[in-house]
């Protein structure tokens, strides 16, 4: 069984935000919720690097560890999903997540949160039939059920953001690093998957 992962090759990311709008396009995510975004460090200075960030679907997901209602679930592919029926919008997962992935619709003026929303690896939700209307409305697209990868990675302008079987994308990255002779690291892999890609 493949274990799917994300990998952002920071030497390729140009902060074009295709991943962000592709996610909106695939999942019809409303204004104000960004399941994926691009983070830039050293903006405007030599050493500027960008990296596309979303839920990394961690091995031992900290969000799941802190959830008081136990709404998280890891699929056989390694995708971390959560049930919006169980979620109470407490925000603990937001504090636990090292990547800032959980998002909350703002429901009122005094900070009350709606149910958490995050990247589903285009895998729909944990309950119901694959690709149903209800699933789409609640969780977004279910591309994985059709044998497709998340649209953010499929549409990445420079093939910086890779999605798929962790071993395959690690191999692609390793080949790139060998060819180019330098790398700025597989960002987030140590945190999410407790491993680095050795070249």
């Amino acid at each position: 069984m493949a274990r799917v992962k994300f990998l952002c090759d920071a030497d390729r990311c140009i902060e074009c935000n295709a991943c962000v709008t592709a996610c909106k396009n695939a999942n019809e995510v409303p204004w104000g919720i960004n399941r994926r975004r691009v983070v830039t460090i050293n903006d405007g200075r030599p050493g500027e690097r960008s990296v596309s960030m979303a839920c990394m679907h961690c091995n031992d997901a900290p969000c799941a560890a802190v959830c008081p209602v136990d709404c998280f679930f890891t699929t056989a592919d390694g995708v971390v999903l959560h049930s919006k029926d169980l979620c109470i919008g407490c925000g603990y997962c937001f504090y636990a997540c090292p990547f800032g992935a959980p998002q909350y619709p703002k429901l009122g003026n005094f900070g009350s949160r709606g149910k958490m929303d995050k990247c589903t690896y285009c895998s729909g939700g944990p309950e119901g039939a694959d690709g149903s209307a209800a699933e789409f409305a609640k969780y977004g697209a279910n591309r994985m059920a059709e044998g497709k990868l998340p649209l953010c990675a499929e549409m990445c302008s420079t093939k910086s953001l890779l999605a798929g079987d962790g071993e395959i994308i690690a191999r692609i990255y390793r080949e790139r690093v060998l060819k180019r002779g330098y790398n700025s690291g597989s960002w987030g892999w140590q945190t999410a998957y407790q491993e680095t890609i050795n070249v």
Binding site: C16, A18, C19, A22, N25
Partner: peptide
Amino acid sequence: SHCAKGAS
């Protein structure tokens, strides 16, 4: 591939 514009 697309950029932000093409992907939307």
